[in-house]
Write a protein that binds this DNA or RNA. Sequence first.
RNA 1: GGCCGAGUGGCAGAGUGGUGAUGCAGCGGACUGCAAAUCCGUGUACGUCGGUUCGAUUCCGGCCUCGGCCUCCA
Length: 458
Amino acid sequence: MTLKLHNTMTKAKVPFEPADPKRVTMYVCGPTVYSRPHIGNARPALVFDVVFRLLRHLFGEEHVVYARNITDIDDKINAASQESGRPISDITKEMADIYRGDMAALGVLPPTHEPHATAHILEIITMIETLISGGNAYEAEGHVLFNVPVFDEYGQLSNRNRDDMIAGARVDVAPYKKDPADFVLWKPSSDDLPGWDSPWGRGRPGWHIECSAMIEKHLGQTIDIHGGGHDLIFPHHENELAQSRCSHDGADLARVWMHNGFLTMDKDKMSKSIGNIVTVHELSQEHAGETIRFAMLSAHYRQPLDWSDDLLAQAKNTLDRLYRTLDNLSDVDIPADAKPSDAFIAALSDDVNTPKAMAEMSALCKAANTATSDDERAHLKGQLTTSGAVLGLLQDDPQSWLKSGGDDDAEIDALVAARVAARGSKDFAESDRIRDELSARGITLEDGAGGTKWRRGC
RNA sequence: GGCCGAGUGGCAGAGUGGUGAUGCAGCGGACUGCAAAUCCGUGUACGUCGGUUCGAUUCCGGCCUCGGCCUCCA
């Protein structure tokens, strides 16, 4: 089964061939920790978590190295600190912890490495020195700037030329820049801001250079996959690419560039600057993490996805159905050699087509619900569970999933038992009265061959 | 202005040059004391105008609408 991935650089879906199948490397731009993550921030984390799981499935768990950084030095963090009066390190530590907790709630696996920018200042300085000595960067008024015209291939990833960029530029060009497109590698810090000593005085790194430095340190000069949100293509990834190639004798930074589409709220991009955000924390109060995850993966990662309550409700309904099927398979054990179905892996191998993969899971469900032999039911249970694992779904216990959301299980069990007794004596008036009572409490009953089951929700 | 992407049935959302996935919701049936669940069945969906083709939702071109990037942003 050949994995095919869409490469932003070539705008084509191509077979994925890692440089070393024993060490597949992936880097994804992580959060800048100055506030709680919103659900839009969670999309890349979730998307690349699925890519991570898929790569581990295809190449082996120990053969995939995934790094997702934490940006803990940034002007927005400084602003948050000045506004709240809290020390910067307090804010970054708290928000990084919240980020990890929120992602864990969505079933996102921890990456292999989670490098922090402030722990890589030396590497950053070294890389900047290399760029200066190579003639790709220059110092000006305490700043160090990357000189864009020196790098012929600048603009290749985002498919834009310098004239366009200058024509569309909405920022004032700093007077010390040699070229309007030049961008900052290092900038001076005043005494009240975080800073590190450097050959160019006390200062701090620009945004783009940290990723280049951390990629080199943890993954190497050329990585297999570089991922992030669509809005990072320009300028962030274009600049990363330029810095890394120029400091590595032109070596490619990434073999494949992957970018996820945006989450919208009423068709507008969800973003902190617009203010139309809902945080992961808020959503987690109302919905199971797995429901949020399912909703997110119900669209292909490169497509836009409009976030809504209705989307979550549909996700919950569909997930309930999958868990009901698993619950009905509780009498058979998963075979030791269980693995995902071929059709499921084929779907994910086609540029991580999660909606199609989910459709394959529904097909497995239907097969399981109609299968007659226990061997076949066990086989299908194994396929369903292991397929779900690649998406980070269906790993909960079916009973606890179906009954979660309340703390009155014992009381419900007692009412159900009373109703079973009433039915046994054909007292259907009493039986229906109890069922109505339970229904009013949000409990649904199922009278099956094996007895009566209950679950929360309709 | 430049670049990029999207427009599929009630909703969500894949895919394809020629019987139009899948899920949710709806409807009919089986099953059930009645339900629920499950199963079976069910829907004149592919923005618009042209072109190519024996045949296009799928390829090409124009147009319309919407969104994104070009400044921080996942």
